[in-house]
Design a protein around this nucleic acid. Structure first.
Lengths: 121, 121
DNA sequence: AAATTGTGTATAGTGGATATACACAATATA
DNA sequence: TATATTGTGTATATCCACTATACACAATTT
């Protein structure tokens, strides 16, 4: 559980949890089959509500990144490297469509976006 | 007033107004010195509250894109082409820092971002 | 003086996010 | 079997951003 919660970012806590754990899973930092902490324990550690943790876990399951077994716990989904790459790109692309809509609305060409991107990446 | 308001996007209305008008100004679609509609008229046309329009106009003024004169109205700021380009890049870069933070958290290299970007742009 | 426009304030409804608490279901373990 | 652990579901409540209506005030124009 290496999570950093920001109370000033405006991003809901449950989404912060979802994004950070997603990234960790898709970067292979959490072993497949390994279990996530119980929601109660996670809630206590992170000092947030159980509902908040539950919401994040639900999103992770909906994304196919974990699976839950009532009475046992939540476990990292067993994914092949190809599946991991696929899911990672899907998540990035989904967000990128929204991001680029903003750039396009200002009339930027893809070349201009590349130029600006180099400065901040 | 060529504005499209979405009630399902999750983006606050005042921000949608701000972004769309910002884009129009920075794309040169609104002549400098030309006046924006009075907030009451805009609110009626767009079927939103005066407060919502006011909020958007305030953000536009804070961004230096318009200036207001009590009793007269709100007018497009008179900017040089260089200033327009500068402000446009500032706005894009500000957003891009947030966008790329997300990409980075998934471990993507700048080359991978370019590859995915080409697909959606 | 009247109309127009921007500013400010008061009041209120709605919904999302968050939190606490409790009951129930499934699993593991002694 | 009994107990503990864990996930699920529900009820209740608080907080805050967003949005809306309404009214009073200030500055400008006509």
């Amino acid at each position: 559980m290496n999570i950093a919660i920001s109370n000033t970012s405006g991003t809901p806590i449950y989404q912060q949890l979802f994004e950070q754990i997603s990234a960790q899973i898709l970067k292979g930092e959490l072993e497949t089959g390994y279990s996530l902490p119980p929601i109660r324990q996670a809630a206590t550690e992170l000092r947030v509500s159980i509902i908040t943790v539950k919401k994040a876990w639900e999103e992770l399951e909906r994304a196919g990144l974990i699976y839950t077994v009532t009475g046992k716990g939540c476990f990292i989904a067993e994914l092949t490297p190809d599946e991991i790459l696929q899911k990672r790109n899907d998540m990035i692309l989904k967000q990128m469509v929204l991001d680029t809509a903003y750039y396009k609305s200002f009339g930027l060409t893809v070349e201009e976006v590349f130029e600006l991107l180099k400065k901040v990446y």
